[in-house]
Design a protein around this nucleic acid. Structure first.
Lengths: 252, 252
DNA sequence: CGGGCCGTTGACACAAATCAATGTCCGTGG
DNA sequence: CCACGGACATTGATTTGTGTCAACGGCCCG
């Protein structure tokens, strides 16, 4: 378990420990990294495509979107990051961003210089491996979003999105109702689901009529099992329950 | 430049060197990894979701698809790997697969035990970083596929797919015609584009009528610039021209 | 009070899925 | 050598899902 000191990086460590075993000294090294708090206003794009970064940020509080826009100005959100996530972890090894990062709500970031991260990785290779693994999990989620867009209709996409976020917030599965904060607009919901905001509105109305999702923003799921069925939600890709698999026997 | 010895891993090294600087000894260590050739028949699924692997494979020749299917049996392809790519590089740090890998054509793989890879990474951390970076590039491509599905209509999706593959095969951009082998069926094209095979057929017909893509399988692009315009293709996400950026100054 | 931003709704147009059928090529076996 | 079956490609008619255009309502905040 993580040393529960007051480091601003504690939530990030907790996230890593879900999928990687780290020694006490590795944990301590991570928590002791130099960092500074950065406040980002609502709807501020704090990383632009092509930008070269020298720091990587952990979300301490708020909501960050990774997105891309086409020449017609339409925007597609390709990932949503919540507290404890590190949206630009990739930048440690690939400092030039190929997408945008923006805060959907007022957001507090904890920024760590690449140089410090690289130094601690050099000293503790297992830590580097854990970070690499974290990128893999991120990619796994992204792959599911691709499946979501490619295989499901609009209603199921939205249902799947809510199921995923409920899981990632740690409030699902549950038998009764589920409520959690996900203060995004219907416009932004549409940008994750690859539909127009008008259609997102209609699908929300249907989900409400079906007794599945009562509200958005403060998401209020009224029938988890039915919603998961509509979404064909299968959470294994989130790799949240999984305890460390890299020790399985090797064909040496 | 890579020592051009006859190692079956030479194409993979060449791929790494596009984005990472490696010393001669690092390169030699990679090329000297133990490996064995594996032949995969057409349409054989050689990694199944949930499977735990002890080896990682480089594509020596052929075509590999990463895909996922929903409960209705529909399938979505989330990545296509060509010679020199390492479809399950991620498995080095996350041996449990959350998706399927299958050979679309008869394919030759070069399989490397995780244990050997991990040993060489321990000895040469920069090599590990290069592999990590390779995963990031893969994720960047995946993010673009998500944008492709979310933002473009069927014709533009197919156009974008062809543009990307032309780039990755190293035959684009070019002024005149472009031809390259991409022997996938319309069914599989549909599974990458998130449409039905019937609609894929109709869109191909339109692209032919527009004088853009004359043939698939042996892809024959007749007007690269126009095709790229239809696709809104912007290749920077492939990070192929980019020479090493991790040395940019750090906010230490 | 007024102006944004966000959400909601209806009518209509259009893109894509579905259903059904036919065509082509190729390898295999009678 | 030809008949057959299977995989792949092609096409038309129709239905369904989603986008587009237009308008209105609630709410917050200046």
């Amino acid at each position: 378990m993580p040393p529960s000191n007051g480091s601003p990086l504690a939530p990030f460590l907790a996230r890593l420990l879900r999928r990687s075993e780290l020694t006490r000294s590795e944990q301590q090294a991570l928590l002791s990294l130099p960092s500074r708090e950065v406040l980002i206003g609502q709807n501020v794009v704090y990383v632009k495509p092509g930008q070269v970064n020298a720091e990587a940020c952990v979300v301490a509080d708020g909501l960050v979107a990774r997105s891309d826009r086409n020449s017609k100005g339409q925007s597609q959100i390709t990932a949503l990051y919540i507290a404890g996530d590190m949206p630009d972890l990739f930048s440690v090894v690939q400092p030039k961003a190929t997408w945008a990062l923006s805060a959907l709500t007022r957001t507090t970031l904890v920024s760590v210089p690449h140089s410090a991260l690289r130094a601690v990785i050099d000293e503790y290779p297992r830590l580097g491996e854990a970070l690499w693994r974290d990128c893999i999990v991120d990619a796994g989620i992204l792959a599911q979003w691709t499946v979501n867009l490619g295989l499901r209709d609009a209603k199921a996409r939205i249902a799947h999105f809510y199921c995923e976020m409920a899981y990632r917030y740690g409030v699902a599965p549950a038998t009764g109702q589920i409520k959690f904060q996900l203060p995004i607009t219907q416009q932004q919901l549409a940008e994750t689901a690859g539909i127009t905001p008008i259609h997102a509105n209609r699908m929300l109305k249907q989900l409400r009529a079906d007794g599945l999702v009562v509200r958005h923003r403060t998401v209020w799921i009224d029938n988890w099992k039915a919603l998961a069925a509509v979404a064909q939600f299968e959470p294994s890709y989130l790799q949240q329950d999984i305890r460390l698999l890299e020790n399985t026997k090797d064909a040496a």
